[in-house]
């Protein structure tokens, strides 16, 4: 056995993990670190002056003197909660429906998954036409039921819910998919026992299916929430944050600062705040999950 081989054998655990460690360092740690570093500078591409160290000034401005940050912050969570709650309720309900193997259920399942595989920007453009206030299909559809035409994404009040609706259309299938996978792994014994005890369908759902499914649904909600908080493509394709600033979420606001105003330092600071928010959110969720697991 030569010496290289011996060395490799001894350090096998480092060598095998090295590629992934490198990946994490280059693709995650460096960008996050550099963004954090930049957030202490005033650096604008629209001037020839080099980055200027301003320490916490960017953050001070974000929290106390930026008329667009807080509205964008609340919009982000309004959108997330609206979209994810709707998707979860619908997704789980649909999964329960699909779980009963009716005739043609496989076909329906396949069709149902289609929105998920389409490109968000393309979807955004299609829904843009559907929502068009005077000739769009959405208003025509409402017209069949005698409901007055709505402004949809052209109205500052309806725009965000309308986009959440499109997001729901696209991502409900994902919750369904995950829930279906979970359902197929549920143990039969509990159901048999319930049948023996004479529980009705309603009781079985609330007392057995839902508690057993909770971790799965929770995972689905977590995945969707992360996606929804950082949502960008649909909003950008459909309204670019308009009308006015009515659909400007944190990501859109960050994008505007970075790629339209070219204020790189300030954008980094916004994104750091955003990063912290998501971090805190994840921690809370994890703690919450531990607690629910105990009670199960």
């Amino acid at each position: 056995m030569n010496i290289i081989q011996l060395w490799i054998e001894k350090h096998l655990k480092y060598i095998f993990t090295l590629p992934s460690v490198l990946f994490v360092l280059i693709m995650i740690v460096f960008p996050v670190g550099y963004t954090a570093y930049l957030s202490f500078f005033d650096w604008s591409m629209s001037s020839v002056s080099p980055p200027k160290w301003v320490f916490l000034d960017n953050f001070k401005k974000i929290f106390f003197d930026d008329p667009r940050f807080w509205p964008a912050f609340f919009r982000t969570f309004y959108f997330t909660i609206l979209a994810v709650v709707t998707q979860t309720v619908l997704g789980v309900a649909i999964a329960l429906l699909f779980f009963r193997n009716f005739k043609g259920s496989n076909l329906v399942k396949t069709l149902f998954l289609l929105p998920m595989v389409s490109t968000p920007v393309a979807i955004g453009l299609v829904w843009l036409l559907i929502f068009e206030p005077s000739i769009g299909f959405a208003n025509q559809f409402l017209g069949y039921f005698g409901i007055d035409p709505q402004l949809w994404i052209a109205s500052p009040k309806q725009a965000l819910p309308a986009i959440a609706m499109v997001d729901t259309w696209q991502w409900t299938p994902m919750i369904t998919l995950i829930t279906l996978a979970g359902l197929s792994q549920l143990p039969n014994e509990n159901y048999e026992a319930a049948a023996v005890d004479g529980a009705n369908a309603w009781q079985i759902f609330w007392k057995i299916t839902l508690p057993l499914m909770a971790p799965t649904i929770f995972a689905a909600v977590l995945l969707r929430s992360i996606d929804a908080v950082k949502h960008f493509d649909l909003i950008y394709a459909m309204t670019q944050g308009g009308p006015g600033y009515a659909t400007e979420t944190l990501n859109i606001y960050g994008f505007a600062n970075g790629f339209q105003y070219f204020k790189l330092g300030y954008t980094s600071a916004i994104l750091m705040v955003f990063f912290m928010i998501v971090l805190i959110m994840s921690c809370l969720i994890l703690i919450f999950r531990k607690k629910t697991e105990v009670t199960l």
Partner: peptide, 10 residues
């Protein structure tokens, strides 16, 4: 507002 189309904000 008074004479424009709906959706003019977009």
């Amino acid at each position: 507002k008074d004479a424009g189309p709906p959706g003019v904000l977009n």
